[in-house]
Amino acid sequence: MSAGIELWPPAASHHAQQVDLLIGSFGAMVWLLTIPVFVLMSWFAIRYRRSREVNRDHAPTRNLWVEVGWSVIPFILVLGFYVWATMLFLDLYRPPPDAIPIHVVAKQWMWKFQHPDGAREINNLHVPAGRPVKLIMTSEDVIHSFYVPALRQKQDLVPGRYTSLWFNADKPGRYPLRCAEFCGADHSAMGGTLIVMPPQDYAVWLGRNRDGGMDGTLAQAGARLFRDLGCSGCHSAAASVKAPPLEGIFGRPVALADGGTLIADDQYLSDSILLPNKQVAAGYRPIMPTYGNVLAPEQVNALVAYLKSSRAREDSK
Protein backbone atom coordinates (compact mmCIF):
# COMPACT_ATOMS: atom_id res chain seq x y z
CA MET A 1 0.00 0.00 0.00
CA SER A 2 2.30 2.64 -1.29
CA ALA A 3 -0.20 5.48 -1.23
CA GLY A 4 -2.94 6.52 1.16
CA ILE A 5 -6.50 7.39 0.24
CA GLU A 6 -6.72 10.19 -2.26
CA LEU A 7 -10.21 11.58 -1.90
CA TRP A 8 -10.40 13.95 -4.83
CA PRO A 9 -8.68 13.56 -8.19
CA PRO A 10 -6.66 16.49 -9.60
CA ALA A 11 -8.45 18.82 -12.01
CA ALA A 12 -6.54 19.78 -15.14
CA SER A 13 -9.12 21.99 -16.83
CA HIS A 14 -11.77 24.60 -16.10
CA HIS A 15 -14.39 22.06 -17.18
CA ALA A 16 -13.14 19.58 -14.56
CA GLN A 17 -13.60 22.21 -11.83
CA GLN A 18 -17.10 22.91 -13.11
CA VAL A 19 -17.99 19.21 -12.89
CA ASP A 20 -16.64 19.09 -9.32
CA LEU A 21 -18.76 22.11 -8.41
CA LEU A 22 -21.82 20.51 -9.99
CA ILE A 23 -21.50 17.17 -8.20
CA GLY A 24 -20.64 18.95 -4.95
CA SER A 25 -23.76 21.12 -5.09
CA PHE A 26 -25.98 18.32 -6.26
CA GLY A 27 -24.61 16.07 -3.54
CA ALA A 28 -25.40 18.73 -0.93
CA MET A 29 -28.99 19.03 -2.15
CA VAL A 30 -29.40 15.28 -2.19
CA TRP A 31 -28.31 15.04 1.45
CA LEU A 32 -30.69 17.86 2.33
CA LEU A 33 -33.59 15.92 0.84
CA THR A 34 -32.56 12.53 2.20
CA ILE A 35 -31.50 13.11 5.79
CA PRO A 36 -34.96 14.19 6.97
CA VAL A 37 -36.42 11.00 5.49
CA PHE A 38 -33.87 8.76 7.21
CA VAL A 39 -34.23 10.62 10.50
CA LEU A 40 -38.03 10.52 10.41
CA MET A 41 -38.07 6.86 9.47
CA SER A 42 -35.86 5.83 12.37
CA TRP A 43 -37.63 8.18 14.76
CA PHE A 44 -41.09 6.87 13.83
CA ALA A 45 -39.94 3.25 14.10
CA ILE A 46 -38.59 3.85 17.61
CA ARG A 47 -41.23 6.27 18.91
CA TYR A 48 -44.14 4.19 17.67
CA ARG A 49 -42.64 0.81 18.46
CA ARG A 50 -45.05 -1.81 19.68
CA SER A 51 -45.85 -1.95 23.39
CA ARG A 52 -45.03 1.73 23.80
CA GLU A 53 -47.89 3.89 25.05
CA VAL A 54 -48.06 6.93 22.77
CA ASN A 55 -50.82 8.86 21.11
CA ARG A 56 -51.72 7.07 17.89
CA ASP A 57 -55.07 8.81 17.32
CA HIS A 58 -56.04 9.98 13.86
CA ALA A 59 -53.25 8.20 12.08
CA PRO A 60 -53.48 9.50 8.51
CA THR A 61 -53.42 7.08 5.61
CA ARG A 62 -53.64 9.47 2.72
CA ASN A 63 -53.28 13.12 1.81
CA LEU A 64 -53.36 14.25 -1.79
CA TRP A 65 -51.53 17.55 -1.27
CA VAL A 66 -48.75 15.97 0.72
CA GLU A 67 -48.32 13.43 -2.10
CA VAL A 68 -48.23 16.11 -4.77
CA GLY A 69 -45.84 18.22 -2.71
CA TRP A 70 -43.24 15.55 -2.12
CA SER A 71 -43.43 14.46 -5.76
CA VAL A 72 -43.25 17.84 -7.43
CA ILE A 73 -40.94 19.95 -5.26
CA PRO A 74 -37.88 17.65 -5.36
CA PHE A 75 -38.50 17.09 -9.07
CA ILE A 76 -38.36 20.82 -9.79
CA LEU A 77 -35.19 21.19 -7.68
CA VAL A 78 -33.57 18.34 -9.62
CA LEU A 79 -34.64 19.92 -12.92
CA GLY A 80 -32.54 22.97 -12.05
CA PHE A 81 -29.51 20.68 -11.84
CA TYR A 82 -30.59 18.98 -15.07
CA VAL A 83 -30.35 22.31 -16.90
CA TRP A 84 -26.95 23.03 -15.35
CA ALA A 85 -25.54 19.58 -16.18
CA THR A 86 -26.92 19.67 -19.72
CA MET A 87 -25.40 23.10 -20.43
CA LEU A 88 -22.01 21.85 -19.24
CA PHE A 89 -22.41 18.76 -21.44
CA LEU A 90 -23.31 20.82 -24.50
CA ASP A 91 -20.06 22.78 -24.09
CA LEU A 92 -18.25 19.49 -24.73
CA TYR A 93 -19.76 19.40 -28.21
CA ARG A 94 -18.79 22.94 -29.22
CA PRO A 95 -15.06 22.92 -29.89
CA PRO A 96 -13.54 26.33 -30.66
CA PRO A 97 -12.63 26.63 -34.36
CA ASP A 98 -8.96 27.10 -33.57
CA ALA A 99 -8.66 23.84 -31.60
CA ILE A 100 -5.58 21.79 -32.58
CA PRO A 101 -6.87 18.68 -34.39
CA ILE A 102 -5.13 15.52 -33.19
CA HIS A 103 -6.10 12.12 -34.60
CA VAL A 104 -6.45 9.20 -32.23
CA VAL A 105 -6.57 5.57 -33.33
CA ALA A 106 -7.13 2.93 -30.64
CA LYS A 107 -6.52 -0.76 -31.00
CA GLN A 108 -6.21 -3.73 -28.65
CA TRP A 109 -4.37 -2.51 -26.52
CA MET A 110 -2.71 0.78 -27.35
CA TRP A 111 -3.37 4.42 -28.17
CA LYS A 112 -1.89 5.96 -31.33
CA PHE A 113 -1.81 9.73 -31.79
CA GLN A 114 -1.11 11.79 -34.93
CA HIS A 115 -0.38 15.50 -34.51
CA PRO A 116 -1.32 17.78 -37.44
CA ASP A 117 2.28 18.67 -38.16
CA GLY A 118 3.29 15.04 -38.52
CA ALA A 119 4.53 14.09 -35.05
CA ARG A 120 3.30 10.68 -33.93
CA GLU A 121 3.34 8.97 -30.56
CA ILE A 122 1.98 5.91 -28.81
CA ASN A 123 0.24 5.89 -25.39
CA ASN A 124 1.59 9.35 -24.51
CA LEU A 125 -0.21 12.45 -25.68
CA HIS A 126 1.64 15.78 -25.50
CA VAL A 127 -0.51 18.90 -25.65
CA PRO A 128 0.15 22.59 -24.97
CA ALA A 129 -1.40 24.09 -21.82
CA GLY A 130 -4.14 26.66 -22.30
CA ARG A 131 -4.76 25.79 -25.95
CA PRO A 132 -7.95 23.99 -27.02
CA VAL A 133 -7.26 20.54 -28.46
CA LYS A 134 -9.75 18.51 -30.47
CA LEU A 135 -9.28 14.76 -30.68
CA ILE A 136 -10.72 13.07 -33.78
CA MET A 137 -10.94 9.44 -32.78
CA THR A 138 -11.67 6.03 -34.20
CA SER A 139 -10.88 2.43 -33.38
CA GLU A 140 -9.28 -0.32 -35.41
CA ASP A 141 -11.06 -3.20 -33.73
CA VAL A 142 -13.46 -3.10 -30.77
CA ILE A 143 -14.97 -0.17 -28.88
CA HIS A 144 -12.54 1.61 -26.58
CA SER A 145 -13.07 4.71 -24.46
CA PHE A 146 -10.65 7.61 -24.05
CA TYR A 147 -10.79 8.61 -20.39
CA VAL A 148 -8.71 11.20 -18.58
CA PRO A 149 -10.06 11.49 -15.01
CA ALA A 150 -8.26 14.82 -14.51
CA LEU A 151 -10.35 16.28 -17.35
CA ARG A 152 -13.56 14.60 -16.04
CA GLN A 153 -14.11 13.58 -19.65
CA LYS A 154 -14.40 10.40 -21.61
CA GLN A 155 -15.56 9.45 -25.09
CA ASP A 156 -15.96 6.06 -26.71
CA LEU A 157 -13.96 5.24 -29.84
CA VAL A 158 -16.14 3.24 -32.20
CA PRO A 159 -14.80 1.22 -35.12
CA GLY A 160 -16.18 2.47 -38.41
CA ARG A 161 -17.01 5.94 -37.20
CA TYR A 162 -15.38 9.09 -35.91
CA THR A 163 -16.12 10.49 -32.50
CA SER A 164 -14.46 13.54 -31.05
CA LEU A 165 -13.61 15.09 -27.73
CA TRP A 166 -12.17 18.53 -27.09
CA PHE A 167 -10.58 19.98 -24.00
CA ASN A 168 -8.50 22.88 -22.82
CA ALA A 169 -6.09 21.68 -20.15
CA ASP A 170 -4.66 24.72 -18.40
CA LYS A 171 -2.55 23.10 -15.69
CA PRO A 172 0.75 21.64 -16.95
CA GLY A 173 1.41 18.17 -15.59
CA ARG A 174 1.19 14.47 -16.31
CA TYR A 175 -2.27 12.93 -16.03
CA PRO A 176 -3.23 9.28 -16.41
CA LEU A 177 -5.16 8.27 -19.51
CA ARG A 178 -7.19 5.08 -19.30
CA CYS A 179 -9.39 2.93 -21.49
CA ALA A 180 -12.84 2.93 -19.89
CA GLU A 181 -14.74 0.55 -22.19
CA PHE A 182 -14.06 -3.15 -21.68
CA CYS A 183 -12.04 -4.16 -24.74
CA GLY A 184 -10.75 -7.68 -24.11
CA ALA A 185 -7.95 -9.45 -22.26
CA ASP A 186 -5.57 -6.56 -21.55
CA HIS A 187 -8.21 -3.85 -21.10
CA SER A 188 -6.72 -2.76 -17.79
CA ALA A 189 -3.26 -2.45 -19.33
CA MET A 190 -4.48 -0.03 -22.01
CA GLY A 191 -3.26 3.09 -20.26
CA GLY A 192 -1.19 6.08 -21.15
CA THR A 193 -0.34 9.59 -20.06
CA LEU A 194 -1.67 12.98 -21.05
CA ILE A 195 1.27 15.35 -20.81
CA VAL A 196 0.22 18.97 -20.60
CA MET A 197 3.22 21.22 -21.35
CA PRO A 198 3.77 24.96 -21.25
CA PRO A 199 3.30 26.14 -24.89
CA GLN A 200 6.99 26.94 -25.43
CA ASP A 201 8.02 23.46 -24.22
CA TYR A 202 5.40 21.95 -26.50
CA ALA A 203 6.87 23.82 -29.48
CA VAL A 204 10.29 22.41 -28.63
CA TRP A 205 8.84 18.92 -28.24
CA LEU A 206 7.09 19.16 -31.61
CA GLY A 207 10.30 20.29 -33.28
CA ARG A 208 12.12 17.26 -31.92
CA ASN A 209 9.38 14.78 -32.87
CA ARG A 210 8.24 16.06 -36.22
CA ASP A 211 9.91 13.18 -38.00
CA GLY A 212 8.40 10.54 -35.78
CA GLY A 213 7.33 8.10 -38.47
CA MET A 214 6.26 10.25 -41.40
CA ASP A 215 7.87 13.00 -43.39
CA GLY A 216 6.24 16.40 -43.26
CA THR A 217 2.81 17.27 -41.94
CA LEU A 218 -0.12 14.89 -41.83
CA ALA A 219 -1.63 16.59 -44.90
CA GLN A 220 1.64 16.25 -46.83
CA ALA A 221 1.75 12.57 -45.96
CA GLY A 222 -1.82 12.33 -47.22
CA ALA A 223 -0.90 14.06 -50.47
CA ARG A 224 1.86 11.51 -51.03
CA LEU A 225 -0.54 8.64 -50.37
CA PHE A 226 -3.07 10.21 -52.74
CA ARG A 227 -0.44 10.10 -55.45
CA ASP A 228 1.08 6.71 -54.60
CA LEU A 229 -2.27 4.93 -54.43
CA GLY A 230 -3.24 6.37 -57.79
CA CYS A 231 -6.29 8.22 -56.47
CA SER A 232 -5.60 11.05 -58.91
CA GLY A 233 -5.86 8.57 -61.78
CA CYS A 234 -9.63 8.79 -61.46
CA HIS A 235 -10.28 11.77 -59.23
CA SER A 236 -8.85 14.48 -61.48
CA ALA A 237 -10.17 16.50 -64.40
CA ALA A 238 -7.77 14.90 -66.88
CA ALA A 239 -8.60 11.32 -65.92
CA SER A 240 -10.21 8.96 -68.39
CA VAL A 241 -12.38 7.30 -65.70
CA LYS A 242 -15.06 9.65 -64.49
CA ALA A 243 -14.89 10.09 -60.69
CA PRO A 244 -15.95 13.05 -58.52
CA PRO A 245 -13.31 15.79 -58.28
CA LEU A 246 -12.03 16.06 -54.73
CA GLU A 247 -10.30 19.43 -54.73
CA GLY A 248 -11.89 21.52 -51.99
CA ILE A 249 -14.58 18.94 -51.23
CA PHE A 250 -14.32 19.11 -47.42
CA GLY A 251 -17.23 20.94 -45.83
CA ARG A 252 -19.12 21.27 -49.12
CA PRO A 253 -22.56 19.76 -49.78
CA VAL A 254 -22.52 16.56 -51.87
CA ALA A 255 -25.54 15.36 -53.88
CA LEU A 256 -26.02 11.59 -53.56
CA ALA A 257 -27.29 9.08 -56.09
CA ASP A 258 -30.22 8.21 -53.83
CA GLY A 259 -31.45 11.82 -53.95
CA GLY A 260 -30.12 12.98 -50.57
CA THR A 261 -27.40 15.48 -49.86
CA LEU A 262 -24.86 15.67 -47.10
CA ILE A 263 -21.92 17.78 -46.04
CA ALA A 264 -18.56 16.17 -46.77
CA ASP A 265 -17.06 15.66 -43.30
CA ASP A 266 -14.45 13.31 -41.83
CA GLN A 267 -17.00 10.52 -41.60
CA TYR A 268 -18.16 10.83 -45.24
CA LEU A 269 -14.65 10.98 -46.66
CA SER A 270 -13.49 8.04 -44.54
CA ASP A 271 -16.58 5.98 -45.45
CA SER A 272 -16.04 6.75 -49.14
CA ILE A 273 -12.54 5.30 -48.95
CA LEU A 274 -13.41 2.25 -46.84
CA LEU A 275 -17.04 1.55 -47.85
CA PRO A 276 -17.39 3.33 -51.23
CA ASN A 277 -20.83 1.92 -51.98
CA LYS A 278 -22.37 3.27 -48.79
CA GLN A 279 -23.02 6.74 -50.22
CA VAL A 280 -22.49 7.19 -53.97
CA ALA A 281 -22.23 10.71 -55.37
CA ALA A 282 -24.99 11.62 -57.84
CA GLY A 283 -24.05 11.22 -61.50
CA TYR A 284 -21.31 8.64 -60.92
CA ARG A 285 -21.33 4.88 -61.21
CA PRO A 286 -20.39 2.89 -58.08
CA ILE A 287 -17.13 1.55 -59.47
CA MET A 288 -14.64 2.55 -56.79
CA PRO A 289 -13.10 -0.46 -55.02
CA THR A 290 -12.82 -0.50 -51.25
CA TYR A 291 -9.50 0.43 -49.68
CA GLY A 292 -10.49 -1.10 -46.35
CA ASN A 293 -8.01 -3.96 -46.69
CA VAL A 294 -5.24 -1.75 -48.07
CA LEU A 295 -5.12 1.21 -45.70
CA ALA A 296 -4.49 1.49 -41.97
CA PRO A 297 -6.73 3.95 -40.12
CA GLU A 298 -3.78 6.32 -39.71
CA GLN A 299 -3.38 6.45 -43.49
CA VAL A 300 -7.09 7.21 -43.90
CA ASN A 301 -6.62 10.04 -41.40
CA ALA A 302 -3.72 11.37 -43.49
CA LEU A 303 -5.79 11.24 -46.69
CA VAL A 304 -8.67 13.05 -45.00
CA ALA A 305 -6.25 15.65 -43.65
CA TYR A 306 -4.94 16.15 -47.20
CA LEU A 307 -8.49 16.59 -48.58
CA LYS A 308 -9.18 19.10 -45.81
CA SER A 309 -6.04 21.04 -46.66
CA SER A 310 -7.07 21.23 -50.29
CA ARG A 311 -10.17 23.00 -49.03
CA ALA A 312 -7.95 25.43 -47.18
CA ARG A 313 -5.94 26.10 -50.36
CA GLU A 314 -9.13 26.68 -52.36
CA ASP A 315 -10.36 29.15 -49.76
CA SER A 316 -7.12 31.11 -49.77
CA LYS A 317 -7.09 31.45 -53.54
Partner: peptide, 9 residues
Protein backbone atom coordinates in the same frame (compact mmCIF):
# COMPACT_ATOMS: atom_id res chain seq x y z
CA UNK B 1 -41.97 6.66 5.84
CA UNK B 2 -45.40 8.20 6.35
CA UNK B 3 -46.82 4.72 6.99
CA UNK B 4 -44.62 4.42 10.09
CA UNK B 5 -46.07 7.64 11.53
CA UNK B 6 -48.40 6.87 14.46
CA UNK B 7 -48.03 3.18 13.66
CA UNK B 8 -47.66 0.21 16.00
CA UNK B 9 -44.22 -0.88 14.90
Amino acid sequence: TATLYKADV
